[in-house]
């Protein structure tokens, strides 16, 4: 078929990775929180905060690396609030999650209004690091092996988390904090510490995803730019049933659908954006209809842990 030319496939895969990395980081972050028993509805806000601070620092220092660190920090600020309110004080996770998302949306839009609404500065494209040899492969080379270093790092995180969850003490403790926090407490492990740590790390991951959107994806910060991608991350984490590799699969599927419009334009096919945007969600619904299985969520998910309470 003439549609599947090299240019089309390259545009599709390049776009799939670019759109998929923020989703991957959001999904991995949410998965981490959920394993620890915190239903983190606030990741949309963490992502937006990461996008704003990532952009701000990258623009001030003219360094993409510092920008990514700023994004991690921006996500962690919101996550620290979440850890304080939901883990330490045990407030309702859904109320606080939505409150933090609303607050981050409002605060970043206000800051943008004060600082950038006149000038709309743009970042220069970050440096690309081509892996010698592999980057010469047609289509796949451009999409996977000739990218910004942050892309390699994000993909490597999938393996790192899979290892941590399966093979380490920390991974087991995390799982226990979500399934049976009282048992973990009896075993002498500080549940609050494990859960707070997980939420903070989630903030860092998701904030990095937001910074990726602003620095690599758009090169600019726009209010509300995450446009529900944090929520897609929540869905990815729930569909992945605790497996990081499935988050990656889902992120690439969603990323491909998001980039399909651009790729089709490259191929000269004109389909309304809205129709294309329906594809990934329709695909997931179809999968659920035919393979509908339980989501396998941790049993203490969403419940604050109070010592000694029954």
């Amino acid at each position: 078929m003439s549609l599947f030319t090299e240019a089309f496939m390259t545009a599709l895969l390049v776009g799939a990775i670019a759109a998929g990395i923020p989703l991957l980081l959001a999904g991995l972050g949410e998965q981490l929180s959920e394993k620890a028993g915190v239903l983190n509805i606030g990741i949309e806000g963490m992502m937006l905060s990461g996008a704003y601070f990532g952009f701000l620092i990258a623009w001030k220092t003219d360094s993409a690396l510092l920008g990514f660190l700023g994004g991690i920090g921006g996500g962690m600020i919101v996550a620290a609030l979440m850890a304080l309110l939901c883990v330490r004080l045990g407030l309702n996770q859904i109320v606080i999650g939505i409150a933090l998302t609303l607050g981050a949306e409002g605060a970043t839009a206000l800051l943008h209004h004060v600082q950038f609404s006149q000038s709309y500065p743009r970042l220069s494209a970050p440096m690309v690091f081509s892996i010698p040899g592999l980057s010469q492969i047609p289509v796949l080379g451009t999409a996977f092996f000739s990218r910004e270093p942050i892309v390699y790092l994000s993909l490597a995180l999938v393996g790192v988390f899979a290892y941590l969850y399966r093979r380490t003490y920390w991974g087991i403790a995390l799982q226990a904090a979500g399934d049976k926090p009282a048992a973990l407490d009896s075993a002498g492990v500080n549940v609050m510490l494990i859960r707070s740590g997980a939420v903070l790390l989630t903030g860092g991951l998701v904030g990095l995803g937001g910074a990726f959107m602003a620095i690599v994806g758009a090169g600019i910060f726009v209010p509300f730019m995450t446009s529900g991608q944090g929520f897609i991350g929540i869905v990815l984490a729930m569909l992945a049933r605790g497996q990081p590799i499935w988050v990656l699969g889902g992120a690439i599927l969603f990323g491909a659908c998001l980039s399909l419009t651009t790729a089709l334009q490259v191929a000269g096919v004109d389909i309304p954006t809205d129709v294309i945007q329906m594809l990934p969600f329709a695909a997931v619904m179809l999968v659920l209809v035919f393979l509908g299985r339980k989501a396998n969520l941790p049993s203490a998910l969403g419940a604050a842990y109070v010592r000694g309470a029954r």
Partner: peptide, 10 residues
């Protein structure tokens, strides 16, 4: 308004 709402909810 979003900021006010967020502070109020918390």
């Amino acid at each position: 308004t979003l900021v006010t709402m967020a502070v109020l909810l918390i």
